[in-house]
């Protein structure tokens, strides 16, 4: 692994046209190019890219491949945040410390907006990053746990398809569960 002092920003977004970049990867065997659905190319350290099970199996199927790996379901914005998470995770691989890891994970989600979290979920799912999925699902659960039904509907963009009688019945049946919710 190259030292981080030498290369402080590991994710360099290259916005030049997506074709013909094979020559650049050849310079350093430890970098992998990943192309997002909106045609941005991310140059990522191999160790970080191997955190993505989907990318890893791509290389296992075609070990000699030097091409850019296309990620057709992954937009650039959540992907850059996913990379940020995986870079942190790798530190704990070498030096496992559960409390530090938990702290780092909770700091990671704390500064993200609801939208950030929710956009990252399908990306983590597609790339099969189990740890991140756990962290994200838990973070979303924590954010909606004490919220109202209306808040949750707007959080997930869900239309209410109950008739008002049906909804009243449900609210009546478990009236106590609708008490003490946080203000929207």
């Amino acid at each position: 692994m190259s030292s981080s002092a030498e290369n402080p920003t590991l994710t360099t977004e290259i916005t030049k046209p997506s074709t013909e970049i094979a020559t650049e990867t050849a310079q350093s065997a430890k970098k992998i190019n990943l192309k997002t659905s909106d045609d941005q190319i991310f140059e990522v350290e191999e160790s970080v890219a191997m955190e993505f099970a989907t990318v890893k199996s791509f290389f296992e199927d075609a070990p000699s491949s030097t091409d850019t790996v296309p990620l057709p379901n992954v937009p650039a914005k959540p992907f850059s945040q996913v990379i940020e998470f995986c870079k942190e995770q790798i530190k704990f691989k070498a030096n496992p410390d559960e409390t530090e890891k938990k702290k780092s994970n909770s700091e990671f989600v704390k500064e993200k907006t609801n939208e950030d979290l929710v956009e990252m979920i399908p990306v983590a799912n597609y790339l099969e990053i189990k740890d991140l999925l756990d962290v994200l699902n838990q973070a979303v659960a924590d954010r909606i746990q004490n919220r109202s039904v209306e808040y949750v509907r707007s959080f997930f963009g869900i239309d209410n398809d109950f008739t008002s009688e049906e909804e009243a019945l449900l609210r009546e049946e478990h009236a106590w569960a609708f008490e003490d919710v946080d203000e929207d």
Binding site: V149, H174, A177
Partner: peptide, 10 residues
């Protein structure tokens, strides 16, 4: 408690 409430989402 949250799940009983969220039955009324949709």
């Amino acid at each position: 408690q949250s799940l009983l409430r969220f039955q009324a989402v949709c």
